[in-house]
């Protein structure tokens, strides 16, 4: 019906809810970021309640800006997100091309491949950091131990023994340490999200024009050139979408970081804020505003890239 009132009415609840969700907490964050506000301070008890009296101007921003840990958190955020994006896209394309053919058990292969995506992040992290990556009890520890034992056994063997006695003893890596926890996070999230990329690329590959490929074969294009000049451009749009959606999710990674290192390892921005929230609300809020700015830069970039293709 030409009546415009009813459609508007139907959209109102969703719009109002999201507007509230976006504006109210964010304006509070903005306010807190300009005042001195800490949860515990025995000497200055007036700072423990949010009040305009405690106006600090850009002091919180200055404070955060000068913290090395803040910059480290940004660095870690970027390292984690870009590594995951890079790995999932490469692995995703490779696996999608690999299974884009008919063979016995294709259905089961697909089910096995997609499963990690549905594992809740908390379980994912617990599973990987304990049972797989633990340097003693995890599979990593068991495997390294096993290799060392085999080598030790071979040292006493005739002929080749001399060769193996030159080998060092392998050391398992602890992924709970500061320098390595980010790698554990990257590994587990890549494991979880590669299936997502595979699923989307695979769907997209099925809509690829087979006649175009046959024409290319007649034109003398080999397998690699077909992949390079036909398949990859065809995957351009799904790749952009995979990047966008993953960026949305991974910029706010939290549970994995928390479980892997419990604060001892590489912290990303959300985790850093989470720690500040335990006491220094002013600084946490200022960091939050920085995070919003960072997310906006990424968002503008991504929406520019993907937005148009979504609307077609």
């Amino acid at each position: 019906m030409a009546n415009r009132t009813i459609p508007r009415l139907l959209q109102t609840p969703a719009v109002v809810l999201l507007l509230f969700w976006m504006l109210v907490p964010l304006s509070m964050t903005l306010f807190f970021s300009f005042i001195r506000y800490v949860l515990n301070n025995l000497r200055r008890p007036e700072w423990t309640s949010p009040s305009i009296e405690n106006w600090r101007g850009f002091g919180n921003y200055q404070y955060v800006w000068n913290q090395d840990s803040f910059w480290l958190a940004i660095q870690n955020s970027i390292l984690i997100v870009t590594s995951i994006l890079f790995l999932t896209v490469i692995l995703g394309v490779a696996i999608a091309v690999l299974i884009n053919r008919s063979f016995p058990g294709l259905g089961i292969v697909r089910v096995l491949l997609i499963s990690p995506f549905f594992v809740m992040p908390a379980v994912n992290a617990v599973l990987w950091i304990n049972m797989i990556l633990d340097p003693v009890l995890g599979l990593q520890g068991i495997a390294v131990n096993g290799i060392n034992e085999i080598i030790a056994g071979l040292r006493s063997a005739p002929v080749v023994g001399g060769f193996f006695s030159l080998w060092p003893e392998f050391e398992p890596i602890s992924f709970r340490a500061t320098q390595t926890s980010a790698y554990a996070v990257i590994m587990m999230v890549t494991w979880q999200w590669t299936p997502f990329a595979v699923l989307i690329f695979m769907t997209s590959l099925q809509s690829e024009d087979q006649q175009q490929k046959e024409a290319a074969t007649l034109d003398g294009a080999g397998r690699w050139n077909q992949f390079r000049f036909l398949t990859l451009p065809h995957l351009g749009r799904p790749i952009a979408i995979v990047v966008m959606i993953q960026a949305i999710f991974h910029l706010s990674l939290y549970a994995e970081i928390e479980i892997v290192s419990r604060g001892n390892g590489n912290k990303n921005l959300p985790y850093y804020i989470g720690e500040l929230v335990n006491n220094n609300i002013g600084a946490a809020s200022a960091t939050g505003i920085f995070a919003v700015i960072l997310a906006n830069i990424v968002a503008i970039f991504l929406l520019r890239m993907v937005g148009k293709t979504l609307m077609e």
Binding site: P25, L26, L251, Y254, I273, G274, A284, S285, G288, I289
Partner: peptide, 8 residues
């Protein structure tokens, strides 16, 4: 980012 509005 969810973390930005955690404390509020």
């Amino acid at each position: 980012p969810a973390a930005a509005v955690l404390y509020p």
